[in-house]
């Protein structure tokens, strides 16, 4: 038995690409949740002290514990409250919430980097609160944090395979399936790894270029 069989590799590639589609869907939807929820957390984090403390505690708790356990938590706990969702939906929710705690820190740094004078000017003009955020602060903060957000999308993409824990048939799920049927794991897992590299490496190069072009708060 050869270690590497090209025709077998070619044969399983369509199944892997099909799995990759699921991985990408989960990443895109998860990122959207992370972008929106992270912004909400960042803005709440600037609210009155009790709100700030609660938000901070939740963010720290989620960041300090494994995504996989949070996936299981939603998957097994939601049904006990009568909420039964498809596995992929649960996975997207968990990814989104987990990464929202990361993106909230990114937004926070971006908002902190908006000069004090900008806030003072909005006060001087008596701008309504909503307009302060949408018209002045966020348009300055968000472009600066785009590279950091991009990095988290790439991170999430690479973490998505842990959704096989709840039976989401993404790329790694497909690999287990085809590898398990034929007991040929080398081609399957090597191809899966290469597919990740093929997508994430150019993406991270692109983010690095974006980083160099804009001054990014760390």
């Amino acid at each position: 038995m050869n270690v590497w069989d090209w025709s077998f590799a070619a044969q399983i590639l369509p199944a892997l690409l099909d799995g990759l589609r699921i991985t990408l869907i989960a990443t895109v939807l998860g990122s959207l949740i992370a972008f929106v929820l992270g912004l909400v957390l960042a803005i709440l984090g600037r609210g009155p002290t009790p709100v700030r403390i609660v938000v901070r505690a939740i963010v720290e708790f989620i960041r300090s514990t494994p995504l996989l356990v949070q996936v299981y938590f939603l998957f097994f706990v939601l049904p006990t409250f009568g909420v039964v969702l498809p596995a992929l939906t649960v996975g997207v929710l968990a990814l989104g919430v987990h990464y929202a705690t990361y993106t909230s820190e990114v937004y926070r740094a971006g908002i902190d980097a908006v000069p004090r004078g900008q806030w003072e000017a909005t006060t001087a003009l008596s701008l309504p609160r909503m307009r302060v955020w949408t018209g002045v602060v966020l348009p300055q903060a968000i472009p600066r944090v785009l590279p950091a957000l991009g990095n988290y999308v790439i991170s999430m993409f690479k973490e998505t395979p842990l959704l096989i824990g709840i039976g989401v048939y993404d790329i790694v799920g497909q690999v287990r399936e085809v590898g398990g049927q034929s007991f040929r794991y080398v081609e399957a897992y090597t191809l899966a790894g290469l597919l990740f590299l093929l997508l994430s490496y150019p993406a991270s190069l692109a983010v690095r270029r974006l980083e160099r072009r804009s001054a990014v708060p760390r």
Binding site: V3, F157, K158, E159, T160, P161, L162, I164, V172, V175, R176, G179, Y185, V186, A188, Y189, T190, A192, G193, L194, F196, L197, S200, Y201, S204
Partner: peptide, 23 residues
């Protein structure tokens, strides 16, 4: 550095457990 950062940790785990023993 780029190879390990560019591929998924879950994939690396399965690779070491299932592909490496074959090799």
């Amino acid at each position: 550095v780029e190879g390990l950062r560019g591929t998924s940790e879950v994939v690396q785990l399965f690779w070491i457990f299932f592909a490496l023993p074959v090799l």
